[in-house]
């Protein structure tokens, strides 16, 4: 097999995930795009390991070992990431990462336009969520 096929597929998948990370608003969709990027890296690792295991005399199969480690780390990352997203949703009532601007410069929390767009709606939902969590 030509080595360019898996390499080009992995590059295109990585850029698809890059678009998703940059363009999506929901935090869970951003996590999905991160998974796509990690999978593109895994495909690269496996393809180059298969190539080198035939081209080289002695190989450590480091590409496949690193791909396995990446899969395990991605599973851990998705667990922690979803726990963080759920904690943010429980406190704020939204998982929209465009509204989480508390530490951004130039966007004050009592900004009038952000008040108009998003500050009013999440507050009662967050309160309801709190009551549900305590019940």
């Amino acid at each position: 097999m030509h080595l360019a096929y898996p390499a080009v597929l992995s590059a295109l998948l990585f850029c698809t995930g890059l678009y998703g990370v940059l363009a999506r608003r929901n935090a869970i969709l951003v996590l999905m795009s991160v998974e796509l990027m990690l999978n593109a890296v895994n495909l690269n690792l496996v393809a180059f390991d298969v190539w080198l295991s035939r081209a080289a005399e002695e190989t450590l199969h480091s590409g496949q070992a690193l791909a396995l480690f990446t899969i395990a780390i991605a599973a851990a990352e998705i667990g922690i990431g979803l726990a963080i997203v759920l904690a943010v949703y429980r406190n704020r009532g939204t998982s929209d990462i465009d509204r989480l601007r508390d530490t951004a410069e130039g966007h004050e929390p009592d900004d009038p336009d952000s008040d108009a767009t998003g500050r009013e709606a999440p507050a009662p939902r967050a309160a309801g969520e709190k009551a549900e969590a305590t019940a």
């Binding site: 097999m1 030509h2 080595l3 360019a4 390499a7 080009v8 590059a11 295109l12 990585f14 850029c15 698809t16 890059l18 678009y19 940059l22 363009a23 393809a47 298969v50 190539w51 035939r54 081209a55």
Partner: peptide
């Protein structure tokens, strides 16, 4: 985001195809 990802895809595909044009995997 679309512009950034299309530019990255173009650059990566060009580099990868140019680098591994004569490389084959023996399956």
């Amino acid at each position: 985001a679309l512009a950034v990802s299309v530019a990255a895809a173009g650059a990566l595909v060009w580099v990868v195809v140019d680098a591994f044009r004569t490389t084959w995997i023996d399956l």
